[in-house]
């Protein structure tokens, strides 16, 4: 096996592979910290719910403008936000907890999305929206992905401290009269925005995988929140790179290939990572013998 031909040449030779790789890099930068914050807030499944919530908006965009990424993204963004805001409202004004209201609204949203697509499009289109086509990322969608990643990093730089405090000790933030509600909402906007960025490349169903799996894995490698977020981004990018190669050489769909690589990294992390993994639990290092 020639390492150059296997590992590098596909990206040199094919523009679509290069664009896919850049898209993965941009996605990873935002997904790392956002995913870690979701995990730390114990809202991992909320990412999943939101990713499904994006669907009807994307579908409506699709029925209006066909496979136009910009229109579909905008629709997806609005639909995701609507679900987030409605669930948040129900959780605030009724005793129902946010996880239940989120589940309710995203299920409605998902059914609506599938319905719209099945009336207007062929099944191929549905597959397209659900599983994405990273190998068909064009310059417009690449620009969109990179813009969203940049905006995410800027927003995180500004409100990151607040997001961490709101997640670590929400009672303290309330007691010092901090902007808890605004931060919570800004964070949901970030999540939806990033899922929209990922859905061209990976599809609505797969995008959340690249957000959550590296974040969940990173906790087994680092102990400080900044390092965890950086590790998470690195894992996401590595999974993107390896997944693209896998999909190229084995002729597999790229979205699932990338997510499965990330899943593999997660399992290795659970078993062998240095922080709290199975290995450190059950094979503790021997005490220093005096």
């Amino acid at each position: 096996m020639d390492p150059y031909a296997t590992l590098i040449q596909p990206f040199v030779e094919f523009g679509f592979m290069r664009r896919a790789l850049v898209a993965c890099l941009a996605l990873s930068l935002g997904y790392g910290p956002v995913g870690v914050l979701l995990v730390l807030r114990r809202m991992s499944l909320l990412g999943d719910a939101l990713s499904h919530a994006v669907l009807p908006g994307a579908a409506i965009g699709f029925t209006i403008a066909g496979l136009s990424l910009v229109v579909m993204s905008f629709g997806g963004f609005i639909a995701g936000l609507a679900v987030a805001v409605l669930s948040g409202l129900v959780a605030r004004v009724t005793p129902q907890r946010e996880d239940a209201s989120f589940a309710a609204f995203y299920l409605i949203s998902l059914a609506l999305g599938v319905l719209i697509i099945s009336i207007r499009g062929s099944n191929v289109d549905l597959m397209h929206v659900l599983f994405g086509t990273i190998l068909a990322v064009d310059d417009t969608s690449l620009l969109l992905v990179v813009s969203i990643a940049t905006l995410t990093l800027v927003v995180l730089a500004v409100i990151g401290r607040g997001l961490i405090v709101e997640c670590f000790d929400p009672g303290f933030l309330r007691a010092v009269d901090g902007p808890g509600a605004i931060l919570h909402f800004a964070f949901l906007v970030l999540v939806v925005m990033n899922l929209v960025a990922g859905f061209h490349a990976l599809g609505t169903l797969m995008a959340v995988g690249l957000m959550m799996l590296p974040a969940a894995a990173a906790r087994f490698w680092a102990g400080r929140i900044t390092t965890i977020a950086a590790t998470s981004s690195a894992i996401a990018f590595a999974a993107g790179y390896a997944g693209l190669l896998l999909s190229f050489h084995a002729n597999l769909p790229s979205g699932p290939a990338i997510i499965l690589v990330a899943g593999g990294v997660y399992i290795v992390s659970v078993v062998a990572g240095p922080c709290g993994s199975l290995r450190t639990r059950f094979l503790p290092r021997r005490h220093l013998e005096a």
Binding site: L40, A157, V158, I159, R161, G162, I164, V165, C167, F168, D169, P170, G171, F172, V176, G178, P179, R219, A222, G223, R224, I225, I228
Partner: peptide
């Protein structure tokens, strides 16, 4: 309502007492 498993250090937690001074950024 503190998450005691949160990856934050002791001194960083104490530093939050300066919230009025440092606020968000």
């Amino acid at each position: 309502e503190i998450d005691r498993s949160f990856p934050i250090s002791v001194v960083e937690t104490v530093l939050l007492g300066h919230w009025r001074t440092i606020e968000l950024f």
